[in-house]
Amino acid sequence: MKKDKKMTLTLPAEELMACGHLACQGCGAALAMRYMLKALGQKTVLCIPACCWAVIDGPYPYSSLDVPIYHCAFETAASTATGVKAGLEMTGDAETTVVAWAGDGGTFDIGLQALSGAAERNDDIIYVCYDNEAYMNTGIQRSSATPYGAWTTTTPVKHFKTQPKKDIVAILAAHRVPYIATASVSHPEDFFKKMKKAKDIKGTRFFHVYAPCPTGWKSRPEDTVKLARMAVQNAYFPLLEIEDGEKYTLNLKLKDKKPVNDYVRIQGRFRHLTDEQIGSIQAEVDARWERLLKLSV
């Protein structure tokens, strides 16, 4: 006889993010923030550059978060966070976790130099890139995190993005920072666990968090978690950890790796793609997965 499964809440019930924020329906980035704060707790300071979250927390004089926020310039999430950490330490607060919380544009593009600088110095910050794969806050323009094939307002259907997404995790691994993790809003417990682990590590810790965006992906708000889960299960966005730039751990081995087709087909931004073009996405995903399998041995 099957026993009744007991449901246990593994994430803390305490909420540091209040309702009344300004995210769109089904926003992956809003979930990501909520889960991160559950892991880091109240002794946290956020540096948020221009990105969706520059608006989501609420306009002056409001904030939907119970942790302090410094709204910084677009390209300065990492450098501002470095300064905040130094400033807190010099005024007697060595405990507080300082987080740079940026979108993909602020990380992959305009903020990459400052991020590289902080990573090379191994500054004691957690840098989180919530990736919705385009400049969503300004109205869905392509970034270097936009994947091959996607429509955006600057890569129209007739001229969709033909370059693959920049491999930001590999760039950070090349800096040999102590800890890198990918996470997805579909796997909050995994995200929570990694964030808890990162909190106790010294130096630059980098999170690449997959955050679907119904507005920009032309997907249904109720499909956000589903899409994020599909991306994990088809290895489009594998869950992994890298320690010291060398030690790769794949958190989900994916014995039954799903094809990307279903994932691509339920997003309006890929609607124009032919089967052949989706085939090339599949080939790229497979190649990267094989590479990761070798690296994680």
């Binding site: 109240q42 300071v45 306009p59 004089p61 904030s63 978060l65 926020i69 410094y70 005024t91 507080t96």
Partner: peptide, 15 residues
């Protein structure tokens, strides 16, 4: 100042 003891948002969207 920016401290968890007195959480405030600095420089947010200002209408």
């Amino acid at each position: 100042r920016l401290t968890p003891n007195d959480p405030r948002a600095f420089g947010g969207l200002t209408g």
